[in-house]
Amino acid sequence: MDIQPIIKIEHLSSGYNGKPVLKDISLDIYPNEIMAVLGTSGCGKTTLLKHLIGLLKPDKGTIKLFDKDIVNIDEVEFNNILKQVGVLFQNGALLNSISLGENIAIPLEQHTNLSPDLIEYLVRLKLKLVGLDHVYDYFPSELSGGMRKRAALARAIALDPKILFADEPGAGLDPVTASSLDTLLLSLKQQLGMTLIIVTHETASIKRIADRVTYLHDGKALFSGSLSEALKSDVSELRAFFHSSE
């Protein structure tokens, strides 16, 4: 039986102010897999991510999430799709004016009918998952960069999304925390059946968790395949990427 891709990108091209950033990218992402999007700085990884979550509109091509074209979709339907999507932004993007607990409660309060005590329990549970249950009442500005990132992950997985987009989740974390974060991402995939799209530079993390890898170079997808294929690939840029970090 053929498995249908959960995300389908076809001939995606886009740019800023007429300058092309993404050039004819086609990519399929399947349910319950971890797809790592790699590439050097400025190659278009974050831009690709922003297209997948609807923050940017492409110049050409289609993007389908859950088999629905999100490029030409009405806002109400797209908001329903977004309820099944979690996004971990590069710098966390937590709301600074409210506490960590309140930050993580936002999606639970907005999209569920759970009682306030259950919401508080779930928030503490998600914070515990990322190892931050002791800072429930803290404000984002009172946390370190790594803690903010983990808190942002707790907010992104608050509703157990089917797809989790993570923009450099391990950046700025110490190796121990980064490794435990990877373990958490893996268990999210295994236990909750999440599909993860991770934009990253961390080769150690890629080797630990990625099922498949897409390598972007100068706005083009130079390689797309399994992790083992990527590690043996002849694509010189990809080889350089893996070898330079060894």
Binding site: Y121, L125, L129, D137, S187, Q191
Partner: peptide, 17 residues
């Protein structure tokens, strides 16, 4: 059971706060 265990965390409320 595994899923329940994944989320089975000893959530302690700090009563003093």
């Amino acid at each position: 059971e595994q899923t329940i265990r994944l989320f089975q965390v000893d959530v302690k409320y700090d009563e003093s706060e």
